[in-house]
């Protein structure tokens, strides 16, 4: 059974807040809290190895901080920042595997994020690949003319991409008007908060709080 995306988002945020509240260097406490995503990872229908590897994407940033801490002889802090950033991104990755980006965005809207912002996010998601394809074909055209390293070509590609984006937004707006758009986007997301969500949220927050403050 799938949780309501709002429940998933709230649990993720609670967990990240609990992590953020730990004093740097308190590695035992941090390790205790790491148990949660690890348990979740093994209980959820997610590609485990893939997520564990993907989470390493955050390491360049935290390696830099860890390196400075190490140079100053503070191993505990170095370990702390590496571990905390790794486990945070792992929690985010698990959440984004259990709920789609769209579901999470709509959960944000239901939880009070401005509708306008969420709609803009949806448009970005819809058109990322379209514009990337366009940028790619421009790059190919520039390469064919043997001008991979030209400032002028790069600048005019950017300009062209921008102007085409403007034209596209007018075209989209016309298509919206033609189907009766009157200024506000209608919403029809079935999102149902059930008893199971309340229970999951309560157990989750209680678990996080216990591990963080009582253990």
């Amino acid at each position: 059974m799938k949780l309501d995306p709002r429940c998933a988002l709230l649990l993720l945020l609670s967990y990240l807040i609990a992590l953020a509240s730990i004093q740097p260097g308190a590695n035992r406490l941090l390790l205790t809290l790491c148990a949660l995503p690890v348990v979740l990872l093994f209980l959820s229908p997610v590609p485990r190895a893939e997520l564990l590897a993907q989470a390493a994407y955050v390491l360049p940033f935290s390696f830099a901080i860890a390196a400075v801490a190490l140079l100053r002889g503070n191993t505990a802090q170095a370990v702390f920042f590496l571990l905390r950033s790794y486990i945070s991104i792992l929690a985010v990755l698990i959440t984004t595997k259990l709920a789609t980006t769209l579901e999470l965005l709509r959960a944000m809207e239901r939880l009070g994020a401005p509708r306008f912002l969420i709609v803009v996010c949806e448009f970005v998601i819809r058109y990322i690949e379209v514009l990337r394809k366009e940028a790619d074909s421009m790059r190919l055209a520039a390469l064919c003319r043997g001008a991979a390293q030209s400032k002028l070509i790069a600048a005019s590609s950017l300009g062209m991409l921008f102007v085409r984006s403007l034209e596209r937004s007018t075209g989209i707006h016309n298509a919206m008007l033609a189907r009766g758009f009157n200024g506000s986007l209608p919403r029809a997301y079935p999102m149902q908060w059930r008893l199971a969500d309340t229970v999951a949220l309560a157990i989750g927050i209680a678990g996080i709080a216990t591990l963080r403050w009582a253990a």
Binding site: V119, V120, E122, Y127, S169
Partner: peptide, 8 residues
């Protein structure tokens, strides 16, 4: 709305 989204 489409303008902001497409420019994003």
């Amino acid at each position: 709305i489409p303008l902001l989204g497409v420019l994003g």
